[in-house]
């Protein structure tokens, strides 16, 4: 079915650098997606609940503060509690290489580090959404 892909773009945690999140939001819109932008300082609980209500295909989160090891897995945990397995979850930000595999093991589908072109991001979402 020809329908817009819905993506939640949010910033979990306290970090206020939203340049990347905003650029991504605009790029996704320009690629024909519906972007639910939830803004700064979101708790994992807020992100997961918003994702449910908005019935999104993808959750895209950005963290630049280094709190990814706590916040990303927490989102996955909450999704699991809600028995949700049809939302693609991806992350972006300053994530050291050593941290990437453990995050993937926790269920984050992909981590995009700084310098990733928005087209890579867009294509990844298009190719990997689950429904």
């Amino acid at each position: 079915m020809d329908r817009p892909i819905r993506v939640l773009v949010g910033k979990p945690g306290l970090d206020g650098h939203d340049r990347g999140a905003k650029v991504i939001a605009r790029a996704l819109r320009d690629a024909g997606m519906e972007v639910i932008y939830t803004g700064l300082r979101q708790t994992p609980e807020q992100i997961v609940e918003a994702a449910i209500q908005e019935d999104v295909d993808c959750i895209a989160m950005s963290i630049l503060s280094g709190a990814h090891n706590h916040l990303f897995p927490r989102v996955m945990e909450l999704l699991k509690e809600e028995k949700i397995d049809d939302i693609l979850v991806i992350g972006g930000g300053v994530v050291p290489d050593d941290d990437i595999q453990p995050l993937k093991d926790a269920g984050i589908a992909e981590i995009f580090t700084p310098g990733t072109p928005t087209t890579t991001f867009i294509n990844y979402i298009k190719e990997n959404i689950i429904r």
């Binding site: 817009p4 024909g32 519906e34 972007v35 639910i36 939830t38 609940e49 918003a50 209500q53």
Partner: peptide, 18 residues
């Protein structure tokens, strides 16, 4: 032009989410 949209109203309602 693109069929996309940025839906930003939730920002104002963040603490209703839960």
């Amino acid at each position: 032009f693109t069929g996309g949209a940025i839906l930003g109203d939730r920002v104002r309602m963040a603490d209703l989410t839960n």
